[in-house]
């Protein structure tokens, strides 16, 4: 027994740090952002760059009709082919990306921005402010989203700004509820009382003390909403309720190609594929970032 004890002690003391190091290493490996993050991010970078610099890419004008080359498949002159009016598909998809991306970013930001203001006021002041905002949000939720979108489209026509706004309004209730819950949680903390005790005003407390503490779940929410907004915009375009022709949009191009699916399926399929990849990329990148944010909050990083 006297013989084995030191061995075992030695063994265990030598083994423990190694196990520990292994565990840390495997944790780090698991947390490393792999190809599942970088490839989608690269795709998004390409789409965003193309949309931003579309005017300098030497593309055919997106609305230039060419009756000599209609429904052409991909070829040397038109890399992605042409549609039923002979318009260049690559050009239409890149200019269409402008619409999709604008809506994708603007709508969640509008919704979360307004929801943030409502939620933080409700959570901080409680009482009647909370009641009024709560009732307003419940009322808003009782109206079907599609009705709101239709109404905006009919009343204001298909301007890009109105599409962003109407979609953004749909994101308000959830954003407001997330903000309210987080604000309730933080405005009772002692550091808020401490700030008041040092003479801070309500505005100051909300912006400097509370907001930085509740911003992460809202950023995560924006990341979730971006692909949702792009898909909804696509559906609206398909139904002709988004921006008006001839402005190209992904949903609109897909809808136009519907008539020619048998002869020229590329007109519908290419924008569908582009939209699919973009939405998938936003989801993958968003998931990775949200996981990172959760780790930061848990103190793992």
């Amino acid at each position: 027994m006297a013989d084995i004890t030191p061995d075992r002690l030695e063994g265990s003391s030598a083994g423990a740090p190694d196990d520990n190091a292994d565990a840390i290493a495997s944790h780090n490996r698991k947390n490393r952002l792999g190809l599942g993050f970088w490839i989608p991010l690269a795709w998004l970078a390409v789409v965003v760059a193309a949309a931003v610099f579309a005017d300098f890419l030497g593309l055919f004008p997106a609305d230039e009709i060419d009756w000599m080359h209609i429904n052409e498949g991909p070829n040397d002159a038109h890399i992605l082919g042409t549609d039923h009016l002979g318009r260049d598909m690559l050009s239409r998809i890149i200019y269409g990306a402008r619409v999709s991306l604008t809506v994708g970013f603007a709508a969640p930001l509008i919704g979360v921005g307004l929801g943030l203001v409502l939620g933080i006021l409700a959570g901080y002041y409680k009482g009647w402010v909370d009641e009024v905002i709560g009732i307003a949000i419940d009322t808003w939720l009782a109206i079907p989203g599609l009705v709101i979108l239709l109404l905006f489209s009919v009343v204001f026509g298909g301007s890009l700004g109105m599409v962003c706004l109407s979609l953004g309004l749909l994101f308000i209730p959830t954003a407001a509820r997330i903000t309210r819950a987080a604000t309730l949680n933080h405005s009772n903390r002692e550091f808020v009382l401490a700030a008041r005790a040092m003479g801070a005003s309500d505005f100051r407390i909300l912006t400097v003390e509370v907001l930085p503490n509740i911003i992460w779940p809202l950023i995560a929410f924006v990341l979730i909403d971006i692909p949702i907004a792009i898909v909804i915009e696509g559906a609206l375009s398909f139904l002709g309720l988004s921006v008006k022709a001839p402005t190209p949009s992904w949903g609109g191009v897909i809808a136009e190609g519907r008539e020619h699916l048998e002869g020229s399926p590329h007109i519908s399929l290419i924008p569908t594929a582009v939209m699919f990849m973009t939405v998938l990329s936003f989801n993958l990148v968003g998931d990775a970032i949200r996981k990172r944010l959760a780790d930061v909050r848990d103190g793992a990083i």
């Binding site: 903390r189 002692e190 005790a197 400097v208 930085p212 503490n213």
Partner: peptide, 14 residues
């Protein structure tokens, strides 16, 4: 005023 619990009386993100 100085509060009881310095774990909570300071803002964690500042």
């Amino acid at each position: 005023i100085v509060f009881q619990d310095p774990m909570t009386s300071l803002n964690p993100v500042m």
